[in-house]
């Protein structure tokens, strides 16, 4: 079907007039726009889910460090910790945090991941969907529905703003990934269309202004740990909306606020590594080390 879903309002209108879930509208739209079948859209999504799962599996067992030598062993540390003393918040929390770290660490090792929406934020959506799916015995079809739902959120946001730290800071990368994940989680747990969008809205609203200040310009510090934090952040949003807590600021207005915040953000904090963590005493020292390593 030909749908115009450039805003959340339009998306909800399309859903209610057709009496369909968000993923149904999106998969039909994608099929229409690219002259393929809904089955083909879903098959492509499944291919991405499988790649996400592979990244988690290999990330969970690797200890290989990144080129810089700074990152790569956090998943293992966390796994060891959980072995000795389980997470306070239970199995789901354990899975979400380790899956997120496992994926983003695969990324910095130059292994295969799925950019979702970007490479630097690649651990968040898979961690939430796959951890929940495992814990709740969710079928592959439902995983596909969840990832399409997540993608719909990213699709709408990206009609207003490019998903790049260089454009709007990390709110546009890990922030958006967290919003996408919240939507996916609410879908997996049987929430309504309104709740799905509300979940994304709450997650995004509470991460507005997140800067991008990677040390040495590498997708490592703070990106790696941020993936675990923002995956968990999505679960907070999920619990709130399932309790019918609503964002008082409507979704499309939150996006507007995000765009404006991105514009107001100093360029020093937008992937230039000229401010924030990158220019702390230690950040600079690390950068110097990296410089000498590069010469070799």
């Amino acid at each position: 079907m030909e749908y115009s879903i450039s805003t959340f309002e339009k998306l909800l209108q399309a859903c209610s007039s057709e009496n369909k879930k968000i993923y149904e509208i999106m998969q039909e739209k994608e099929a229409y726009d690219f002259e393929i079948s809904v089955e083909e859209v879903r098959a492509k999504i499944l291919k991405n889910i499988n790649a996400m799962k592979e990244a988690i599996v290999s990330g969970l067992t690797s200890k290989e460090m990144s080129f810089s030598g700074l990152c790569g062993d956090d998943t293992n540390k966390l796994k060891e910790k959980y072995k000795k003393s389980p997470a306070l918040f239970g199995n789901l929390f354990e899975k979400i945090t380790t899956f997120a770290l496992a994926t983003i660490e695969e990324n910095l090792r130059m292994n295969k991941i799925v950019a979702c929406p970007t490479a630097g934020s690649c651990g968040i959506v898979p961690a939430v969907i796959i951890a929940l799916a495992q814990e709740k015995d969710i079928t592959e079809e439902d995983e596909i529905n969840a990832l399409i739902t997540a993608g719909t959120i990213g699709y709408i946001i990206s009609s207003k703003i490019a998903m790049a730290g260089a454009v709007a800071g990390c709110q546009a990368e890990c922030g958006v990934a967290s919003a996408m994940s919240a939507a996916a989680a609410v879908q997996l747990l049987g929430g309504s269309n309104e709740q799905i969008i509300n979940g994304a809205t709450l997650a995004l609203k509470n991460i507005l202004g997140l800067t991008c200040d990677p040390v040495g310009g590498l997708v490592e510090i703070p990106c790696v740990k941020r993936n675990a934090f923002l995956a968990v952040h999505a679960i907070t949003a999920t619990e709130l909306v399932l309790a019918n807590v609503e964002s008082k600021i409507p979704p499309d207005e939150v996006i507007d606020a995000m765009v404006q915040t991105g514009q107001l953000m100093s360029p020093l904090l937008k992937e230039t590594s000229m401010g924030g963590l990158a220019t702390t005493k230690t950040g600079k020292a690390i950068n110097k080390c990296l410089e000498s390593k590069k010469q070799k």
Partner: peptide
């Protein structure tokens, strides 16, 4: 360019950076 769902999910790529590695 026609916008797609797969602009935000994918590519399946070798990390760590979409601009510096995949690009």
């Amino acid at each position: 360019k026609q916008r797609s769902l797969f602009d935000v999910i994918s590519p399946i790529m070798i990390g760590p950076s979409s601009s510096h590695t995949a690009g």
